[in-house]
Design a protein around this nucleic acid. Sequence first.
DNA 1: TCTTAATGTTACCAGCGGTAATAGTTAGAT
DNA 2: ATCTAACTATTACCGCTGGTAACATTAAGA
Lengths: 227, 227
Amino acid sequence: MAPNVKSDGRTTRWDRHRAERREEFVLAAVRTIDTLGPDASVADIAAEAGVSKPVLYRYFADKGELHAAVGAWAADLVLARVLSAVLAPATARDRVTAGVAAYLDTLAEHPQAFLLLSRPTSGQDPLGPGKDQIAAKLTRLLGDALRHLGGDAGAAEPWAHAVVGLGTSVGQWWLERHTVSRAAAARYLSDFIWHALSGAAAESGVDLSGLDAGDGDVTPIRSEKHR
Amino acid sequence: MAPNVKSDGRTTRWDRHRAERREEFVLAAVRTIDTLGPDASVADIAAEAGVSKPVLYRYFADKGELHAAVGAWAADLVLARVLSAVLAPATARDRVTAGVAAYLDTLAEHPQAFLLLSRPTSGQDPLGPGKDQIAAKLTRLLGDALRHLGGDAGAAEPWAHAVVGLGTSVGQWWLERHTVSRAAAARYLSDFIWHALSGAAAESGVDLSGLDAGDGDVTPIRSEKHR
DNA sequence: TCTTAATGTTACCAGCGGTAATAGTTAGAT
DNA sequence: ATCTAACTATTACCGCTGGTAACATTAAGA
């Protein structure tokens, strides 16, 4: 039988190189889209990366996969920043407020690339992969919190999608219109999210202030590094 | 000076005919997109309409305008149904619940065409026109209600965008996954929206149950026909 | 009589996403 | 030493899509 292809050094010696190079191309795509918008052509992105088009197609099956990679990049960035704010010790409400602030700041850095968070890669998959990624992580966080407090964890997934959907919608409105200050937008958004989650949870007998970290308790929302 | 073009009977005699024909083409587009998805080509839509492509370009400047017309059609349909539910005499909360149910039912009729509610016509305009249309009307409703009850009407616009964003996100998730029943999805969604609005309003001193119609009061949320 | 807008099509074009073909180098496996 | 796997890069090419030009006739208003 043929040897295991994956342990062949002629193949594996390129793994790290490929991953690093792919990341360079994603960053080039982010820069291009930040400049030209999400309709930037593959040729535009290739030019920014300093290669010809067929080189990009060695790393991405098609434009959809390239867009999905940009969306995933944006999701990773958002998650890192929002989670670091949400997981810092504070009252549950202050965590929501800090997460919202981190989200709006991150959005303002790459407004165009963030459109790909919620943009479908094609009509076949209506949920943008980046948005889906964020919703999946939020589902886990909310699910853990609700189970810890004795609530219905089945609500976690729809609520997570609600939070992600409203966040992208209000974020885009704010970027487009700038009719309110960043502080006001952050307040409107965090008030809405806090009351939605705490009120809906309280109705099923769950008190979200059980997640407060003010009194030194270890909360169920742990750093993801420990999972 | 040249006569006012708009009062020339040779031009105006076609106005109604043009409007009716345009509507036929929008409906053909809705059918095509419901069948083939939002990536359906202009040629596909023209074939469904029984005309050649250049005929469609007499009514729509480009594909973006055709998509926007589909989004506007979807928004009109949603608004008609949701508003008729929301404006019926009931408690404020029951109105929210009825509006959500109407929304989900409408969504299930034309799942693919509804994707164009939230899909940008191009990278230049990140807000889909259909979604924007719904948010604008919701902004008016919420603004009227908040002013009537003595609250901060400035919150109406971001909250309206939040409601529309979460509605489309959870609606799409539900259509794609169907992991929960329609009744459960409706309950999660309406709980979330109700608590978000009532809780955030209460924090600024506004009691949304002042909008209840149970005791025969005339509410500020009047039928749009009377405006 | 002239003008305006309608009716419809085929043929055509530029640009985009994506692919085939070309040739040489480096390092691991046999 | 030889073979293999993946790398380096480009130009030329293709099908498809969105969009447009050109053509000819009819009905109604000015």
